[in-house]
Design a protein around this nucleic acid. Sequence first.
RNA 1: GCUCCCUUCGUCUAGCGGUUAGGACGCUGGCCUCUCACGUCGGUAACAGGGGUUCGAAUCCCCUAGGGAGCGCCA
Length: 468
Amino acid sequence: MTVRTRFAPSPTGYLHVGGARTALFNYLYARKHGGQFVLRIEDTDLERSTPESVNAILEGMTWLALDYDEGPFYQTHRFDRYNAVIDEMMAKGLAYRCNCSRERLDKLREDAMAAKEKPRYDGHCRHQHVSADEPHVIRFKTPMEGSVVIDDLVRGRVVIPNSELDDLIIRRTDGSPTYNLTVVVDDHDMAITHVIRGDDHLNNTPRQIHMYQAMGWELPAFGHVPMILGDDGSRLSKRHGAVSVMQYRDDGYLPEALLNYLVRLGWSHGDQEVFSIDEMVALFDIADVNKSASSFSTEKLQWLNQHYIKASEPTHLARLLSPQFAKFDIDPSDGADLIQVAIAQQERAKTLEEMAEISAFIYHDFDDFEEAAAKKHLRPVAAEPLRAVRDRLASLDDWSPEPLHAVVQTLANEMQLNMGKIAQPLRVAVVGRAASPGIDVTLYLVGKPAALRRIDKALAFIEARAQN
RNA sequence: GCUCCCUUCGUCUAGCGGUUAGGACGCUGGCCUCUCACGUCGGUAACAGGGGUUCGAAUCCCCUAGGGAGCGCCA
């Protein structure tokens, strides 16, 4: 039997990191076992499902390169099939019509709560004859005796007494099927062998198992993975920062970094932290997934992102870096080569957005020197070396890192100064702040005209300051 | 309220009856150094609490506490 897994999001929003991890686990499990990974859109909630959300989810899957072998299948295209199953259940006496009013149901719930019991439908209509002509729902007859055993792939054995369950609605008054019915039909029809999903579904599983059994269908294996919490331990939400997968792309994260981060949330392989997709496929096992929820740490994600930035091809980085400059009103196409910028900065940025930010000086003049940096480095003592280096740079023809380095180094030697005594004032003059790549590369990227222009500005600044 | 699930450094985790409780992020000290960063060497910090079982418990059992989920004509 070949392994088949699925990811089945409901299109009521973007693809968030929790869903992405569930998708990743399903993807890895299928790939590891040479099986198939299916994408299914659970859009039976006509009120809340939107085409925009479907697109957002598809886009997220594409960006993460979680490619699926089949689908996307849409549940709204399968209503005939669901209805056929419900009709079959009716014909076999596995389900019944119910016309209990909302008021009665509400009262039932209230009474149960008041009596400190779990709210459950009381099966009132099980033995009532409800005509097909009047408005009604259809309920599935849940066994009243015994219990259900789930041998969960991550939780282990979970036993739930049937007395905790009730007769759930499988077809609404408007004729549409409900979630618990549609998942069961789909997972069966699509021959899903391993249902890996969030543990918020653990409580639904016994009801679903009953439906499989009533229909005489083979059960898939279930694996319920724990939730992802925010960094304060509460349910992950927008106030924790980005939760949408696409937001991470826009913020300058690499998909391989996000995937690597996500796979380590709840899963591990000894002490290993960095995994390529191939390694994940080879090493992942659903049985090694933890039972407890974990908190999302943006800091650790950033560390991984920087790791992947450092390991990336500069040409690749340059392509991804380019759009980040728009945030700083910069068009990098008319300035230094982005590949050279990527090479110079790839060890200095945690995200591509940060890389663009710290590279802005390469493309346009800054307004003011950063106060602390200017105070420390643009002092009167720096004027002489700055003037000297300016003269030599002005007469330099080959404006590339090696000669630039030679200029600064030689001057330092001649003036018997430490490199820092010249490089730092020069850096602040050209960059506007005290941090940048090596001074030679910095000068090279800024270019000769801008460098000289900015040094002049710094000299004027020092002079103005000396006056006061 | 009821049912189910969970509980090792601040965070992610290793551990699967005998370990100085290991690694990673973060924080932090040193080194490297023209700055920042990278790299590198070190430091900080945990078995939720209480009972058992056992010669011996982070590991097995029970209770308590805390956290989460579910109890929809949502998925």
